[in-house]
Design a protein around this nucleic acid. Structure first.
Lengths: 245, 245
DNA sequence: CTAACATTTTTCCAACTGGTCAAAATTTCC
DNA sequence: GGAAATTTTGACCAGTTGGAAAAATGTTAG
């Protein structure tokens, strides 16, 4: 199939919080979720706050961001914001929780039954689309990693590692069947993460280097083309002398 | 030649400040550099401070770091620290200035007269060594980028862009001569930056995914091997049907 | 030794920070 | 319409933050 070009993907509210299974001490949030689970208005306001928080946290990190900043971006007073999220940490936690899920979705889609190159190409494109369409999410994630992931160590050690282990197996299987050049599957995945997220996290640098020219929109297309070439050629199996089968 | 393994590179004091050409208002620093340029002791203390600041800034970013933290790591009182660097921003500025220079050194070494693959392989290895030996510097840089490079926009728009433009020309020349697969030289450089720096900036993630096994030391070796393969194969010129010459 | 200078510590401060609380304004429900 | 519940605001607070001032403590050259 023709490589579908990086189209403007629908912008799902990536930051939308989702209830995580809290059974016992029924949700620690103050006024919301006491008798009735969620008011329509409450959810709206919370989303506005999370949106604003994403904007701020993505740039300044957790410690570098202030509730006042977030409140201002959200267009409400600080006490009012604190009415919905009694703790600064709670906002951050909600953002991160929602993020990781969405962030790993593209990798989850990598299908063992598909053609390796089609799958990998699709994965790269999806990741690149996410870097383009959700740069703030990417930066939030990067910020967290830079700080040593103090707030999500468990998540990356379980959910993320689990998923990567699973997909690494698929890659190795493809390699075993000679459909893909033999290479370290983990580092292969790392390299896809790195090259795609780079365009979100280091956007300023990319823009600066490419100059003020017509790169404004073209850079993601160019990146897609380049990365596709790099990985497709780089991972094409080549019969080497002294290899069995 | 046999691929020299990633050896423990000498640890040059990357953070060592260097006087930048300030001619007029002779250096804004308070007590230092008034009559005599620099006392031996002053330089020592400044280096200790810069070291500590690197440690802190690299993790928490500019806004998220406090002078108290830096002072504590440096083993001195806050006012004492402020005696050497009257402004928090000044510390950061010095770090960044020294950093960018060192950071671009590997790229500067890429030699137009060398063999393309040797040059690129060396570049990748050097960058990977830097990610391994100077992760804090890498994170400091990443932090600055994430924030939109407010303090170094000029540097990246001039020095960095200039250097990349120059090296991109070399790459294109190699491609023209059929020594290297045709590809966007800018995105080629980006991909090397991304894949190598990833091991410093996302170290926690890399460690978590690779598991608690024997990866502790091996991951940089594995990464080097993998990246070498990816880029060497990915950039090998292949005569395609319908291509002139 | 001691005056001149360099360094360090103590004290202090105004602005900012995350967060509380009760009163006021608004919305919801009957 | 009005009582009850929800949302918003203003005043406030204790701890932190970047930084200033000045006194106290070295250090060094004559």
């Amino acid at each position: 199939m023709a490589p579908r070009k990086l189209k403007a993907a629908e912008h799902p509210p990536i930051a939308a919080p989702r209830q995580h299974k809290a059974d016992a001490k029924a949700a620690a949030s103050h006024p919301p979720a006491r008798h009735r689970p969620q008011t329509r208005i409450q959810k709206e306001k919370q989303d506005i706050i999370l949106e604003a928080a994403l904007e701020v946290f993505a740039v300044h990190g957790f410690r570098g961001s202030t509730i006042d900043q977030i409140a201002e971006v959200a267009g409400m007073s600080k006490p009012n914001l604190l009415y919905y999220f009694p703790k600064k940490e709670e906002i951050h936690r909600r953002l991160i929780a929602a993020l990781l899920d969405t962030w790993l979705a593209p990798l989850r889609e990598m299908n063992a039954d598909g053609d390796p190159f089609t799958e990998i190409r699709s994965y790269i494109r999806r990741k690149l689309e996410m870097a383009r369409d959700f740069p703030r999410e990417s930066r939030l994630f990067a910020n967290e990693m830079l700080q040593g992931a103090p707030r999500i160590s468990e998540m990356i050690e379980v959910d993320l590692k689990g998923l990567v282990d699973e997909k690494a197996k698929i890659l190795v299987d493809w390699m075993d069947r000679g459909l893909l050049a033999r290479a370290d599957p983990y580092h292969l995945i790392f390299s896809i993460w790195a090259t795609t997220q780079h365009y979100a996290d280091f956007d300023v640098q990319v823009r600066a280097v490419l100059g003020k020219g017509r790169n404004g929109e073209g850079r993601f297309e160019d990146a897609a083309r380049y990365l596709e070439q790099l990985f497709m050629h780089g991972l094409t199996p080549r019969p080497r002398p002294g290899q069995k089968t």
